[in-house]
Design a protein around this nucleic acid. Structure first.
Length: 395
DNA sequence: TCTGGGGTCCTTAATCTA
DNA sequence: TCTGTAGATTAAGGACCC
């Protein structure tokens, strides 16, 4: 009998990432409840809570007012995303020294295919310790790691014991590992689905697994029913995909108080459009679909999108379409809580062009590069390459 | 009571089209 | 040409995740 080689997937999750970064950089914060997020008294939620803060029941996504009530004496900090991105890059560089098969799941999470590392480092628990050790040595941060035969088991493993945890689940242990878990631990099973399953008396993975498919289908739909049942059986993808391409860019902002002034809404859209455009150019992306998001008092949220004739990363064009969408019929005339602007659906051709024009210096340098490309391509008889050189009027 | 800002993916409905 | 339908595309909303 021939068996395919055992696949081992690792999931790494940095513990209370934002809060840990702050505690690392300011010794005065160590051992104290730290909450990173909105300022108390303002609109917003908790982005990260240190383990000291979690003892007061503070969780991420909790309204900041609720956190302040639970622990008024915690240290409340605004997020420093630049710093977190820097630290995150460091962590991913370290992971890259172990295997090229690293997938960025978020700023503080990664999946690694560590199947091939067994011969190099030893059994999975040794690999897990090595991952944690290298991260700590490079950044001073702790991570929780789960290792299992697929992504689901790896992810549940990293959640199983934290902070600073390590959990290895072999294929033989999968069924027992899953059985007693609350169904809410499964991927993509949120509050809505939880409510439905609760009404059916299904609270553990074991109960879910015992359910006939057709019953679940009646309540969850075909797709979701089959998907959750597969998870309950421990069946999940076991491939790691490095460098996933992003599919959209968006910026949104919530007003401190609901906005009734159309000029302010318009000015905000302009700013958001400019930020989206800048990010897009920085990544060499241009989108054909512009999305407007608007949320009114009472949390009533609408999105409107429109496909443009051609892809764009121009803030004026993005703003133009966003404003058209804002005035399209069907949107209520009420105080506005939030507006957002996004682009998506990259044009088939220029999705990976680097931005040569995102600063005055680089504009000059960029044109030089394109002139050189033009010259070379002319020499070889292909005519000018259409790379969209902006007009040189500002030099 | 209060609910940010970034994303992804799925469902549904309407519309277009072969 | 009429009619019906299957399938693709577009748009809106919702669930979910970190």
């Amino acid at each position: 009998m021939h068996h395919p080689p055992q696949r081992w997937i690792a999931h790494m999750d940095l513990d209370a990432f934002f809060a840990s970064c702050e505690q690392r950089d300011d010794p005065a914060l160590r051992g104290r409840p730290v909450v990173v997020g909105a300022r108390p008294g303002q609109r917003g939620v908790v982005a990260a809570a240190s383990y000291e803060a979690r003892r007061y029941g503070i969780r991420s996504a909790m309204p900041i007012a609720e956190a302040a009530r639970r622990c008024p004496h915690a240290v409340y900090l605004r997020p420093d995303l630049e710093k977190y991105r820097r630290v995150s890059r460091q962590v991913f560089e370290v992971l890259g020294t172990l295997t090229p098969s690293v997938e960025t799941a978020s700023i503080d999470e990664a999946y690694l295919d560590v199947s091939g590392l067994e011969r190099l480092l030893g059994p999975p628990d040794t690999i897990g310790r090595e991952i944690k050790h290298r991260i700590h040595a490079a950044t001073g941060l702790t991570a929780s790691v789960g290792i299992g035969p697929n992504r689901l088991i790896a992810k549940l493993g990293s959640e199983y014991r934290k902070p600073d945890g390590l959990t290895v689940v072999s294929p033989a242990q999968v069924a027992d590992f899953l059985a007693p878990m609350p169904v809410g631990n499964l991927r993509g099973l949120g509050p809505q689905t939880l409510k439905i399953l609760d009404r059916l008396g299904i609270r553990t993975v074991a109960r879910l697994r015992a359910m006939p498919l057709h019953v679940l289908e009646q309540h969850l739909g075909r797709h979701a029913a089959a998907g959750f049942l597969r998870q309950a059986e421990g069946i999940a993808p076991d491939r790691v995909i490095p460098d996933r391409a992003r599919k959209s860019i968006s910026k949104e902002t919530t007003f401190a108080t609901d906005c009734t002034n159309p000029d302010v809404v318009h000015a905000t859209l302009r700013r958001l459009a400019a930020e989206v455009a800048r990010t897009a150019r920085g990544e060499g992306l241009a989108g054909t679909v512009v999305t407007l998001k608007i949320r009114y008092a009472g949390f009533e949220t609408h999105t409107r999108q429109r496909k443009r004739a051609a892809a764009t990363c121009d803030e004026r064009e993005i703003l133009e379409t966003a404003v058209q969408l804002l005035h399209a019929r069907g949107l209520p005339d009420k105080p506005v809580r939030l507006v957002g602007v996004g682009i998506s659906e990259w044009s088939a051709t220029d999705t990976t062009q680097p931005d040569l024009f995102d600063s005055p210096q680089r504009r000059t340098a960029g044109r030089q590069v394109l002139r050189t490309i033009d010259a070379v391509s002319e020499k070889f008889g292909h005519g000018k390459l259409q790379l969209g050189v902006p007009p040189a009027s500002d030099t």
